[in-house]
Structures are given as C-alpha cells and as structure tokens.
C-alpha cells in the first residue's frame, strides 16, 4: 500500500520499496559473507595445504567463520530472489554495482583502507547511475 502511494507522487525523489530494501540487504549480506568465508579460508588453508581435496573442503567447512559466512551469503541470496520476484531484472541487476560502493566503505571502516580520489569519483558516478536507474522506470514493478 505504502509503495503505491509513493509512486503515484510525481517523481518525488527516490522510490524505495521492500524490493529496494531487499536488494541492499542482499548486497550487504553477500559482501559480509564473502569476508567471513575469506577469513576462515585463510586460517584453514595454511593448516591443510597437503591434505587431499575432499579432506580440505571438510576442514574449510568446519571453520566456524566459513560456515557462518556461507549462511550469511545464503540469506543474501534469499533476499536477492525476493527482490527479483518484485522488480524487472533489467532494472535490478545493474543496481548490484552498489556492491563496489559497499565494499569500498566496508574496507575503510573495518580495515582502515584509504579510498583514493579517483575511486571516490567512481563511487560518485556509480551512485549517480543508481539514482538515475531508480527513477528510470514506468513499469518497473512486477
């Protein structure tokens, strides 16, 4: 109900419905999942270099952060499926470029990585494209 009200207003700002929230969630969960998996793999890889591949995979999965990372990643995937059920794919898929923005900020906040000026420009351009995309569409909803 809320969504219809917002969209019937003439072009006032961004249109953010449940699908857009789910999209953001899927990006943040997928990125966090990747980070957790990567961290766990770093630990497990050094310990099991010489084992057979099957044993190595078991060792990876028994790492709590790999397992947790996979679960978090799975939740992100469910959020993505939900978003896809609500919006056109040609609208949603380019919005996943927000991933680069989330990862850049995540790297800065979690690991104190600096963001060079050129990358700030790129982030700004992606965000402009995302805003354009959000405002692009009649017939966006399923």
């Amino acid at each position: 109900m809320l969504e219809t009200k917002i969209s019937s207003r003439p072009r006032a700002g961004l249109r953010i419905g449940l699908a857009e929230v789910a999209l953001l969630g899927s990006i943040v969960f997928a990125a966090s999942g990747h980070l957790l998996i990567k961290e766990g793999l770093n630990v497990a890889a050094s310990a099991t270099m010489r084992e057979a591949i099957g044993l190595r995979i078991l060792a990876y999965l028994s790492q709590p952060s790999v397992f947790l990372g996979l679960c978090v990643y799975g939740i992100g995937t469910l959020a993505w499926i939900f978003a896809v059920s609500k919006r056109e794919i040609s609208y949603l898929f380019p919005l996943t470029a927000l991933n680069y923005v989330v990862v850049a900020f995540g790297g800065r906040l979690l690991f104190g990585e600096s963001i060079p000026l050129k990358r700030w420009v790129g982030i700004l351009v992606v965000v402009c494209g995302v805003v354009l995309m959000n405002r692009s569409s009649e017939g966006r909803a399923e």
Binding site: R119, V121, V125, S136
Partner: peptide, 23 residues
Amino acid sequence: SVPASRWLAMVVICAGVILIAVA
C-alpha cells in the same frame, strides 16, 4: 520494456565501475 533512461543509467553505472577499478 527497457526505457531509454534505463540504458543511460546502465552506461553511467558501467562508467563508474570502470573508474573504481582503475583507481
């Protein structure tokens, strides 16, 4: 239906991704 504004937004997003990658 992919309106012109959506193609434009796509091009802008791609340009941003390229800028982020080369930075």
